[in-house]
């Protein structure tokens, strides 16, 4: 069992974009079960449902190589996701459970698949997501305003 503080030690996402708050099962490099309780108003947007599942996948991918700080540990980037199908929406107060299976891990590129459920109902199936890590320097925002904000936040 892993709570939000342990999750924050593994992945770099932070509120309001930290979208996985519990891990209940984890078999290293094979599979993971995690969850998010939707506390917002209205249905959870499908984009955030995908992001939440992706963060659960990142916990599986990086639990043995934590990356809590993108500036020093690298930036997780999604390359491709495909064949993502949706059931009914996730409603306020509901807990969505993410099931993630690792298909392949080649260097820093991971191939994962899985689904999300609310109780007995499947709300999303993920055909495949391909994610990778990139050094922050290779992605560093170039615009002055962004650089200034990044500098402030880093201080």
């Amino acid at each position: 069992m892993m709570g939000i503080e342990e999750i924050k030690r593994i992945i770099p996402h932070r509120p309001p974009m930290l979208l996985v708050d519990r891990v209940t099962e984890l078999v290293p490099r094979r599979w993971l079960v995690g969850s998010l309780t939707h506390t917002g108003d209205g249905p959870l947007p499908v984009s955030l449902l995908i992001e939440s599942w992706g963060q659960a996948a990142l916990v599986l991918i990086r639990h043995d190589r934590p990356m809590p700080d993108v500036l020093t540990d690298g930036v997780p980037v999604a390359g491709v996701f495909e064949h993502v199908r949706f059931g009914r929406p996730v409603l306020p107060g509901e807990t969505v459970e993410h099931r993630v299976t690792m298909q392949r891990l080649v260097a820093d590129t991971a191939f994962v698949t899985g689904e999300s459920v609310v109780g007995p109902e499947t709300v999303m199936r993920i055909g495949r997501l391909v994610g990778a890590m990139r050094p922050a320097d290779s992605l560093r925002p170039s615009r002055p305003a962004v650089a200034a904000l990044a500098g402030e936040a880093a201080r």
């Binding site: 770099p12 932070r14 984009s47 955030l48 992001e51 700080d69």
Partner: peptide, 26 residues
């Protein structure tokens, strides 16, 4: 840039989440 999403994605390194790009198309 003031959207709070950037405070968490990521601290000190604001990047537009890929899922937001998908959301714009949707």
């Amino acid at each position: 840039l003031a959207d709070p999403v950037f405070a968490g994605h990521y601290p000190g390194f604001p990047l537009l989440p890929g899922v937001h790009i998908f959301e714009f198309v949707h």
